[in-house]
């Protein structure tokens, strides 16, 4: 294990002094007043939120994983908003995109999030294609909290449905390792 005191903020990417200062300040702000994920969640907790899956959101997601499949493009530079094309008509959402947003519905997002938790497992059912532009409801239920080899995990069940027409798009079981 590397010794924290020997690691530099700019060890992996070039940063000036002011960027380093801003980075340390940002991280300090994340840590203030946060609880661990384990403490924030009780078995049986149910939460849900709506997510509008805009063309720009899909582009942000896909660009960062360098997935340039044109089926996901309802936004193009210079043209901007377009209908897009896929085997289902217009542009669709990458198959596990909504899974990435479940974390924001696994605890009370109005409270400071306990940074440092790690996603360890997901069992996802991709039931139907999600059109780009849809508004979905992500609903979660905490089903278990357990310890394994000295580590603490929280399990959730997740359902994602279309707010307008009720289409059931996605179902998932997922585990988070808490600090």
């Amino acid at each position: 294990m590397m010794q924290a005191e020997t690691i530099r903020t700019d060890a992996l990417r070039p940063l000036s002094d002011i960027q380093i200062e801003q980075t340390r300040e940002f991280i300090d702000s994340l840590e203030q007043g946060s609880q661990t994920y384990w403490d924030m969640v009780e078995i049986g907790d149910e939460l849900s939120r709506e997510l509008h899956i805009t063309p720009e959101l899909v582009i942000l997601y896909a660009d960062a994983v360098e997935d340039f499949n044109p089926w996901y493009e309802a936004w193009k530079m210079n043209t901007w908003h377009i209908k897009g094309e896929s085997p289902f008509g217009g542009a669709i959402v990458p198959p596990v995109l909504v899974s990435h947003f479940v974390l924001s519905v696994q605890f009370d997002h109005n409270k400071p999030f306990a940074i440092g938790s790690i996603h360890t497992f997901h069992d996802s059912e991709i039931l139907a294609p999600i059109p780009v532009g849809a508004t979905v409801r992500i609903a979660t239920r905490a089903t278990d909290k357990y310890e394994k080899r000295g580590r603490r995990y929280v399990r959730h069940e997740v359902n994602v449905t279309d707010v307008e027409n009720g289409t059931h798009y996605f179902r998932e079981t997922r585990d988070i390792l808490s600090l």
Partner: peptide, 15 residues
């Protein structure tokens, strides 16, 4: 799998 990956598919991953 093309379009078939978007309907009634399942993906399980353990990190």
């Amino acid at each position: 799998f093309g379009a078939q990956m978007f309907s009634n598919a399942r993906m399980v991953c353990k990190y």
